[in-house]
């Protein structure tokens, strides 16, 4: 393998700086009390004012129960886990069929499953709100979990189809020949073989679910806080970033970072190849 050209080195440097660089000013902004133009650093820091005011500022507010950051984080995680579990249950059989069977209209069906990837989020969100209004289900966790299934399932089915496609069918046949029941085959042969794929798909699904804002916002009707909706209500004005918004941004980045650090090895790039080739 050849080494990087100069231009490639510069490009990768910019990519890394562009991603990690903003963490420093975000941290500073979250610790500022007053950071006016044209100061490069805050003129008054948060801890200097901390004791003189009755109202909690910056990190004090974020850590105070009043900010409801903790319940929002719990909601975010709970939703992601439920969505992932449900999506797995729904997607696994579909992926198995798509990987092993040929049938009339298969490509049409695949297109149908891929459609949520290309239909505007706004249309899905508003339409979904109407669906839930019909059922009287809007504004709660269940509705949000169901809503998140729609963008998650297409990815999941694709990733799992690839995994099933690579599955060694011979091993399953052998097990059947040896007299294993269908359950035994699944439990002792099929499941361990596809487990790495399932893990990768699950992690990907968690990533998607925690990233969703608009669907949660509409279907939740402002009554269910997630980290994304909390941040939206803080920065929707688009004015200067105040310390609480900066802190909240960091609070949202952190779990993502930890998550990546722990799953880096499982979330292999190879899993995502192929999945897209078919479109």
């Amino acid at each position: 393998m050849r080494s990087l050209s100069k231009l490639q080195r510069v490009a990768i440097f910019f990519l890394i700086t562009g991603i990690l660089g903003p963490l420093a000013p975000l941290t500073i902004a979250s610790l500022a009390f007053r950071w006016g133009w044209p100061d490069l650093l805050p003129s008054i820091w948060w801890w200097e004012k901390r004791d003189t005011l009755q109202v909690p500022l910056a990190w004090d507010y974020i850590f105070d129960p009043v900010s409801r950051v903790v319940p929002a984080m719990q909601n975010t995680i709970l939703i992601a886990l439920c969505v992932t579990l449900l999506a797995l249950i729904i997607s696994l059989p579909a992926a198995k069929v798509l990987a092993t069977q040929n049938f009339k209209g298969k490509s049409l069906f695949e297109l149908f499953l891929a459609a949520p990837l290309i239909v505007p989020e706004m249309a899905v969100s508003l339409g979904m709100l109407l669906v839930f209004l019909q059922f009287g289900l809007q504004g709660n966790l269940v509705a949000i979990i169901i809503a998140h299934l729609v963008p998650v399932i297409p990815y999941m089915v694709r990733v799992l189809t690839v995994i099933y496609g690579e599955l060694d069918k011979g091993m399953l046949d052998q097990a059947a020949l040896l007299g294993a029941s269908r359950y035994q085959i699944f439990r002792y042969v099929e499941f361990p073989l596809i487990l790495p794929g399932i893990l990768a798909a699950a992690l990907f699904s968690i990533l998607i679910s925690t990233n969703i804002f608009l669907l949660t916002f509409y279907v939740g009707q402002g009554q269910v806080d997630t980290l994304a909706t909390l941040l939206f209500s803080k920065i929707r004005g688009g004015g200067a970033l105040d310390p609480v918004s900066a802190g909240l941004t960091l609070v949202i980045i952190l779990p993502g970072l930890l998550f990546l650090a722990f799953t880096h090895r499982t979330l292999k790039e190879e899993v995502f190849s192929g999945g897209l080739n078919k479109s």
């Binding site: 890394i16 941040l231 939206f232 900066a246 980045i253």
Partner: peptide, 18 residues
Amino acid sequence: YKIPLAVPYLVGVSIVIL
């Protein structure tokens, strides 16, 4: 390079504003 994949678009909005 995977970090932006793990956070909502709104994080990008915060950073661009800042």
